[in-house]
Design a protein around this nucleic acid. Sequence first.
DNA 1: TAAATAGTGTCTCTTAGACAATATTAT
DNA 2: ATAATATTGTCTAAGAGACACTATTTA
Lengths: 236, 236
Amino acid sequence: MGVLDIPQNYDASRYDRPSVTVDVVVLSLVDDDLKVLLIRRKGAPYAGMWAIPGGFVQIDESLEAAAARELAEETGVTDVYIEQLYTFGDPGRDPRTRVITVAYFALVPADALQVARPGDDAAAAQWFSMFDLPPLAFDHHEILTYALTRLRYKLEYTMVGFQLLPDEFTLSELQRAYETILGEALDKRNFRRKILSAAIIEETGHKRQEGEGRPAMLYRYRENAVAEVKTRRLFP
Amino acid sequence: MGVLDIPQNYDASRYDRPSVTVDVVVLSLVDDDLKVLLIRRKGAPYAGMWAIPGGFVQIDESLEAAAARELAEETGVTDVYIEQLYTFGDPGRDPRTRVITVAYFALVPADALQVARPGDDAAAAQWFSMFDLPPLAFDHHEILTYALTRLRYKLEYTMVGFQLLPDEFTLSELQRAYETILGEALDKRNFRRKILSAAIIEETGHKRQEGEGRPAMLYRYRENAVAEVKTRRLFP
DNA sequence: TAAATAGTGTCTCTTAGACAATATTAT
DNA sequence: ATAATATTGTCTAAGAGACACTATTTA
């Protein structure tokens, strides 16, 4: 039974095979809101509805490479945080044929997007608030719900939140990012104490002044910090 | 580009499609050791080596159903804890053709296995200690490593450990299960305090006496407890 | 000087972790 | 009585959470 016991001269093409795609949930923080990149569908099914960008896995391409390729096609961005989310494969999730999709999520700092050239079909791509989504094609609402749950969860015990900020940021910006994603207010002093005691960021030495108010110290993410911090939850 | 923008009259068979399988990491606690069920491969590639049981996803079958089916075929067991682990899809992980596998892991109480009828190819199936594995086919060593990491991780903040015990168990048995999987000794008083304060188990009212020593109170898992406990780590 | 934002310290309560003696059974 | 296993409580240290005022800048 199973792939492991197939006679060695089997012909794989004899079997009905599902299509395999990757879908990439591209998240970014813009205007203190968590945004997701969606694509407007042109054709049936679900014509006119919005969908998570994705595409077929090429036959000689790893899943991670396929996800990175889709991300680059849609946003022009490379070298950002991307992780496998879950594989969705219910029969009937695509009315045309059996499609199994390996969902990924990517965290893209807003400043990286300004640099990025728009993808080929940029006209059809648009950012939506994760907290105010349009009707979505396929099971994509379920995928986004899953992505938000996972992001919140990871935020509690890893440093993944930094991936959504520019290289240098203030503690207030970092706190706003956490508050936006978690959907709750955090105490300023407790937040700072925890972040600083975790030793995952360091001062850059210079300050940012824009608009009114006292200038804020800029911090940067310590590259080596990730592994050290994964052991303890930041917000239990 | 991608699956979402395919013209509606496209023919899916034009595309090269990978094969999709599910592999099920079946874990059980036997003789105070964490065991995994492996299958001896008869044919090439990797003939004679051991492999995680798995098989093709049928065209009209959900991934979960495929995993449950494979589990039932190998062990005769149904209605046990099973969860999606990760999807492995590197080109070349199977030398014959492109195979993407959605890995699941299942937790089977040892007493459920006694009841279970052996699968058709039971002769080729065997339990191995997760801490003393034979050479494995494909990338299956990586999959098992991933499964152990995930199990240990889940043990820290969910009640998943109960899935490996019979319906009624003593606190000493539960502690031994945790120690076996985590690979470290736990303090008896602290363990009991934490487990009992989490209110996830309840006394059955009767005791077990086998062999020497004072009889131990039997506990059972409170069915409703899962959701309540997921919020806080048990062993930070 | 008013408005806006940044930055800082203490107290209390809960929890984690270290640690040892008594209770109940079979042999 | 002895061996084996089960059961129970306290102290200490660290961390979480609640809470309010001062500092620095621009307009």
